[in-house]
Each structure stands twice: as C-alpha cells, then as structure tokens.
Computed example of a mutant assay.
Amino acid sequence: MLDIVIDARQASLGNGFTVRRILPYRLRRMLGPFIFMDHGGPVNIVPSEVANMDVLPHPHIGLSTVSYLFDGQVTHRDSLGVQQVIRPGEVNWMTAGSGIAHSERFEDPAMLAGGTLEMIQTWVALPEAVEDSAPTFDNYQPHELPIYTDKGVWMRLIAGNAFGLQNDVKTHSPLFYTHVVLQPGARFGLPTGYPERGAYVAKGSVEVNGHRYGAGQLLVFTPGIDPILIAHESCTLMLLGGEPLGERFIWWNFVSSRRERIEQAKADWQAGRIALPPNDNDEFIPLPQDNSKPAGSPPPPALS
C-alpha cells in the first residue's frame, strides 16, 4: 500500500526562516517529476523581523518552481523583469530553463503588522528536451483553478489533470497537484493513471489502511494501488505525483540530468552570467561553498 512514509525535516533557509523539508529525501529523491517540496509556516512574524526573512536574488536552472500560499503574501521579482505578488489560492509557476534569478520578499502590510505566513513550494524537474529552454513566469488566479466539492470534501486543482479536472497551468510532463481539505470522517482517493502518487499531510491527520498519519508526513503509495484516505479530523492534504523523468542531479538551486550542466550553472552564477532582477539587483546570494563535492551529493540548503 505504502512504498515509504517521509517525515518532514527542519531546514533553515539561512535568513531566520525555518521550513519543513519533505523532498528530496535520501531514500526517495523524487515523486513523479517533483524533486523538491518545502512547507513554510504557519508563522506569526514579528514586524521588526520581516525584512530578515526576505529571500534575496538567487539562481535556478532546469526546473519549474511552484509557489502556493495558505496565508500571507509574497512579492516575487525575477530577471525577466516580472514583479508579482502572490496571495492565497493563486499559483506562481516559474520555469527556470536555461537560467533565471529571482527574489521573494515579504512586503505585505499585514505581515509588517505581525501577520501570518504559510506556504508550500515545490520544484518540478523538466524533461531533457526543455531543460535549457528560455525561462518563463506565469501567475494563475483562483478563478483559473477549478474546484471540486462533495460532502466533507473541498479540492482545488493546482496543476495537471486529476479527477476529470484540468486547467491552463502550463506544465511540461504528465503530473497532478491538488490542494484538498477534508472534514472529519470524509473519505477521498488519489487520481488514477499515474505511476507515482503521494499525499502530503499539511494539517490534521488521516487514516490509510488502518494506520494513522499526521501533519508533516508525505505518504508515497505503491503503484497500482488505489488507497482511500479517511480524515480523522479536519485536515489539509497536498496530493502530487506523475510520470517519472529519470535520474536528476540537484545541487543548491540547480537541477539537471547532466552533472556537467550543474557545474556550468555554478560558474555562470559566480561570473554574473545569470542576470539579476532589474528591479531587485542591489544584493544577491553568493554561490555556497561546496567543498568539491560532486553534483550528485547532498546539496547545501536550497532556497525557494
């Protein structure tokens, strides 16, 4: 029924903001094309510390970053010149391709007054044919993301195809990604037709095959098995998965099917060949020291 249960680990982004890191995991590097998953918050922010949580400009290659908020708001700026505020229920989908730099800053007046932030960020690896494509950015509003409801069940399709729903979020390989809220006693399954599927318990707890699982756990299911998830209490789930893409190397914020491409990205960032956001270019995060570890080794802490 379950291939593995992954317990989220605490990880610091290096700016005073601690998140729960779910993927990658040493025994499970990817789930379909998803190669990274962080759960930040919920956190009530002391106004004087908000600026310290900003994620300064940093680079990505070979992936799409997917930002989804439960609470608060974040301002995204990137080297394409995009400036976009993301709010709960929206999706920011940035495809790095050959290389992009972006920042994430917490400029919400409510947060500056001590508001709350909670967000999920995933990275989706790209198929080899588009790993070095031109970077793009898209924001999708809540009305563009279909919602399904049933007794005790609420679900939003973030991306891909699931339960007969689809949307216009641009993806590069077969996948599904949904936000599900279940009331106590509600029962829910997983989308069919995908070889790799999982359910991350963001809040509350669920029962699967007589076992109970709680917040901070990613349940990865055996292919061909169609489990039923039963809510023990009001709970929030993120269902995700899809077709696997094959081996990927990950180091810091770089993902590629080729080790040498990771090394090239390191050199490009050090040499300034990946442009900074034109409206946020006074500071940036330098390349971490890697102590000459190969690109397939455990990476330094990743940034969103």
Rank of each mutant, 00 (worst) to 15 (best):
I230H: 11
F249M: 14
H179G: 04
L31K: 05
Y140I: 01
Q84L: 10
V255F: 11
V91G: 03
A125E: 11
G99H: 11
G246T: 04
H60Y: 06
V50Y: 03
V153W: 04
M155W: 03
R9A: 14
P59S: 05
D54A: 03
A11P: 03
L2M: 08
D226Y: 05
D78E: 03
D3P: 01
K203D: 15
Y200C: 13
I86H: 03
I4G: 00
A101P: 04
N44T: 14
P88N: 06
H58C: 07
Y213Q: 13
F36C: 15
I86R: 02
P24M: 09
G272N: 08
P135I: 10
W123K: 14
I6D: 07
D290E: 04
V208M: 15
V82R: 00
I35Y: 13
P24A: 11
R26C: 02
R212G: 08
L23G: 12
Q217F: 12
E128Q: 15
R273Y: 12
R248V: 15
D38G: 07
D108N: 00
R9C: 09
E107L: 06
E118F: 09
M94L: 00
P286L: 07
F188Q: 02
A265T: 13
I225S: 07
G41M: 02
H60G: 00
N167A: 08
G41F: 01
L27C: 05
K203A: 15
D290P: 03
A302N: 04
L117Y: 05
I228P: 07
A275V: 01
E144K: 04
H39F: 12
T95H: 10
P24N: 12
L145W: 05
E243K: 11
G246R: 02
E247S: 10
L219G: 06
D268S: 13
M1C: 11
G204C: 10
D282M: 09
K170P: 00
D168T: 15
A186D: 09
N139T: 08
G193Q: 13
P244W: 11
